[in-house]
């Protein structure tokens, strides 16, 4: 994106919303900013209607700050809590329907390749666990099978939160939620391992409890997708509302699950991806 495009025309400063003015003057486009710089620039996410203490909102905020190329990134979202936040995101983003984010992203990425063969346009699918592992699983998996150059990020709050707290494929076994009144009967879907098996070049599981490692994962997810093929990042973002804990406990919950062994940060990197990352990360130093 040419930065001149979104500059405010002289004489219109006063009628543009404050948030937009701030974004133009202090936004992160083309500045190579990251998570460490948070608090010093206008974030790509604007005030959103998600719950206090929302792990998903926190994750989304960190993910957006980690984008390696925000001025040329297009996000495809899906229905769910995150779809309430996306209208306030300062990069182009599409909400089409529930679960079809990876299909939309496939068409979009190929279209952008046709239109901008010389330019890098990152397409990132960011959706909840219901959209990624349940209703949209076929489209997620097929985008991987087809080796689409798109980064898939799951915001895993282990429930259908937006519809009122129903059990999802990513809920841990035994969890009592709506539609699993006697407790969930089968284990959490091991999508990272499935992603690895079907050939995602980079697969990672992270959480907002560790912002800088998460940033690294987000960047790797996008950079490998750009150059090699599909990548998958699963971000554990507990939901205080539906799992009924206090908003200030969101990060403590992650740490507790880590201690219990029911949540584990991990990365699977193919040799090809490792080579690329070594080259890119060394080049940066």
């Amino acid at each position: 994106m040419n930065k001149n495009l979104f500059k405010i025309s002289p004489g219109f400063e006063d009628i543009m919303p404050a948030e937009y003015r701030e974004l133009v003057h202090d936004g992160p486009y083309g500045k190579n900013l990251g998570v460490s710089d948070l608090g010093t620039f206008k974030e790509l996410l604007e005030e959103h209607p998600l719950c206090a203490g929302c792990g998903l909102a926190l994750s989304l905020r960190l993910i957006l700050a980690s984008l390696p190329n925000p001025e040329d990134t297009i996000i495809v979202g899906s229905t769910g809590c995150s779809s309430l936040a996306f209208p306030q995101v300062g990069v182009h983003n599409i909400h089409s329907l529930f679960g079809n984010q990876n299909a939309v992203a496939s068409g979009l990425k190929r279209a952008l390749k046709l239109r901008f063969p010389e330019k890098t346009k990152d397409v990132v699918a960011i959706a909840g666990d219901g959209a990624t592992a349940d209703i949209g699983l076929d489209m997620v998996m097929h985008s991987w099978f087809r080796r689409e150059n798109i980064a898939t990020i799951m915001l895993d709050n282990e429930a259908y939160a937006n519809t009122g707290g129903q059990e999802s494929g990513m809920s841990p076994q035994g969890t009592v939620l709506y539609m699993a009144p006697k407790g969930k009967k089968f284990p959490k879907i091991s999508l990272p391992e499935i992603a690895r098996e079907v050939g995602c070049a980079y697969v990672a599981v992270g959480s907002p409890a560790q912002p800088r490692p998460l940033e690294k994962m987000v960047r790797r997810t996008i950079l490998v997708a750009r150059e090699i093929g599909p990548t998958y990042l699963q971000v554990f973002c507990p939901c205080p509302t539906n799992y009924k804990f206090k908003p200030q406990e969101t990060v403590a919950k992650i740490k507790q699950r880590e201690k219990e062994g029911t949540f584990q940060t991990r990365e699977y990197i193919t040799l090809e991806a490792q080579k690329l990352l070594t080259k890119l990360e060394e080049g940066k130093k």
């Binding site: 998600l50 909102a57 905020r61």
Partner: peptide, 18 residues
Amino acid sequence: CKLCIFICPEPNVLKFSK
């Protein structure tokens, strides 16, 4: 130390003055 900035789910609430 900015730890609060990294844990806040709300954007643009905690600002850091250099």
